[in-house]
Computed example of a mutant assay.
Amino acid sequence: MKTESLHLGEHLETAVRAAHAGAALLQSHAHRRSDLVIDKKARNDLVSQADRDAERAILDILVTDTPHLGIVAEESGGDAQGLASWFIDPLDGTTNFLHGIPHYAVSIALVAHAGTVLPGSGPLEKDTPVIGVVYDPCREELFTALHDSGAWLNGHRIRCSSTDTLAESLLATGLPFRDFSFYDAYMPTLANAMHSTRGVRRCGSAALDLAWTACGRYDGYWEMGLAPWDVAAGTLLVREAGGVAEDIRHETPWPIGGYIYASNPHLAGPLYQLAGAQLQNNT
């Protein structure tokens, strides 16, 4: 069993510096998007030089300051290892970015592994997100979260909404765009949400959907078929803002498989039934 502990405060400062460094590269590229080289990793799965440059800037800081931690990054890969691992999405909302839509973010999370000791507590029983940073450079909004300490937007404490019924809720989601294997399970949930809530929004950045759920702009959010770096930071933001963020299948300790529902505690049960029922029926 590991006996070393993580210095969460120091690592949060490192993650914030890395997020700002990555965002600076993104904004530099944003002014000359027509010059970007864009590659297709798969259908509707795009990567540009902006993604790569931002990730490199982030990695330069994280590797230098925390060489003992693992790294899992969207573009360059890596392995989860050691006491904890960074999960990095240098540009969450690539399609928005490439089309000039000012809704995208840098997302950086630190996930502590089972057995790791956190200050003031014993060894963790399961892998747990412990640091979350989501930075929206277009609005200059910095969302941060620290395990068992809270969540903040530009230094001000945030909380999930207090809405207690789906009928009065505004939900966010993401439509299938790359992986259509869950299409038959997803579409009935969207139809149900359209008929049973105040409205549904699809803005194209999972990290910001979760951040906006954490600060109460959305009452809840669900999505399927994401990657772990899309949701790692946002999961902790919602949890530390007093909400629930879990794997729709309830198979993993955090939604590493990319099937996620998140909301305030009042809506967690109803949202799970809305998002999870069809998924269970189609698996």
Rank of each mutant, 00 (worst) to 15 (best):
residue 257 G to E: 05
residue 257 G to T: 07
residue 105 A to I: 14
residue 181 S to F: 01
residue 200 V to K: 01
residue 275 A to P: 05
residue 16 V to I: 15
residue 75 E to V: 12
residue 11 H to Y: 10
residue 229 W to P: 07
residue 145 A to S: 14
residue 7 H to S: 10
residue 144 T to E: 14
residue 141 E to Q: 14
residue 242 G to A: 07
residue 53 D to C: 05
residue 224 M to R: 08
residue 189 T to L: 08
residue 274 L to Q: 01
residue 77 G to S: 06
residue 28 S to F: 12
residue 103 H to M: 12
residue 176 P to K: 14
residue 135 Y to K: 13
residue 249 R to Y: 12
residue 28 S to C: 07
residue 210 L to E: 05
residue 95 T to G: 09
residue 11 H to C: 04
residue 162 S to K: 15
residue 92 D to K: 04
residue 28 S to E: 11
residue 111 V to R: 02
residue 95 T to R: 15
residue 201 R to I: 14
residue 214 A to F: 13
residue 146 L to M: 11
residue 244 V to R: 03
residue 242 G to C: 07
residue 224 M to C: 10
residue 279 L to R: 00
residue 55 E to S: 05
residue 15 A to Y: 12
residue 239 R to C: 00
residue 29 H to C: 07
residue 23 A to P: 12
residue 143 F to Q: 04
residue 131 I to G: 03
residue 23 A to Q: 09
residue 278 Q to I: 00
residue 30 A to S: 05
residue 271 L to S: 05
residue 196 S to Q: 11
residue 18 A to Y: 12
residue 148 D to C: 12
residue 213 T to H: 06
residue 168 E to K: 13
residue 246 E to Q: 06
residue 105 A to E: 13
residue 149 S to G: 04
residue 180 F to N: 08
residue 86 W to A: 03
residue 60 D to E: 14
residue 221 Y to R: 00
residue 215 C to W: 09
residue 192 N to S: 15
residue 214 A to C: 09
residue 155 G to E: 00
residue 8 L to C: 01
residue 142 L to I: 12
residue 57 A to D: 06
residue 74 E to L: 04
residue 34 S to I: 04
residue 272 Y to I: 09
residue 240 E to M: 11
residue 105 A to N: 11
residue 91 L to H: 12
residue 214 A to G: 11
residue 63 V to M: 00
residue 31 H to Q: 10
residue 67 P to Y: 02
residue 280 Q to N: 05
residue 279 L to V: 13
residue 165 T to D: 10
residue 201 R to E: 14
residue 4 E to I: 04
residue 110 L to T: 01
residue 103 H to F: 15
residue 197 T to Y: 03
residue 96 N to A: 07
residue 169 S to Q: 06
residue 271 L to R: 08
residue 230 D to A: 02
residue 256 I to T: 00
residue 218 Y to Q: 00
residue 133 V to Q: 15
residue 283 T to W: 11
residue 177 F to A: 15
residue 163 T to D: 11
residue 60 D to L: 12
residue 143 F to M: 13
residue 142 L to P: 13
residue 278 Q to N: 12
residue 17 R to G: 07
residue 17 R to Q: 15
residue 189 T to Y: 05
residue 97 F to I: 15
residue 189 T to W: 04
residue 20 H to W: 14
residue 118 L to Q: 01
residue 277 A to Y: 12
residue 25 L to D: 07
residue 233 A to L: 11
residue 61 I to S: 04
residue 120 G to C: 09
residue 262 A to N: 04
residue 26 L to N: 04
residue 259 Y to I: 10
residue 73 A to G: 12
residue 150 G to E: 04
residue 44 N to Y: 15
residue 29 H to W: 08
residue 113 H to V: 02
residue 35 D to S: 06
residue 7 H to E: 13
residue 63 V to S: 00
residue 178 R to A: 15
residue 239 R to W: 01
residue 61 I to A: 05
residue 44 N to K: 14
residue 217 R to F: 09
residue 239 R to S: 04
residue 137 P to A: 15
residue 229 W to I: 10
residue 188 P to H: 06
residue 19 A to Q: 08
residue 244 V to Q: 00
residue 258 G to Q: 10
residue 35 D to C: 06
residue 183 Y to K: 11
residue 153 L to M: 11
residue 45 D to S: 14
residue 104 Y to K: 03
residue 226 L to K: 03
residue 128 T to M: 05
residue 126 K to E: 08
residue 153 L to R: 08
residue 141 E to R: 13
residue 240 E to S: 06
residue 225 G to F: 08
residue 18 A to W: 05
residue 232 A to L: 11
residue 261 Y to T: 09
residue 229 W to A: 05
residue 223 E to A: 15
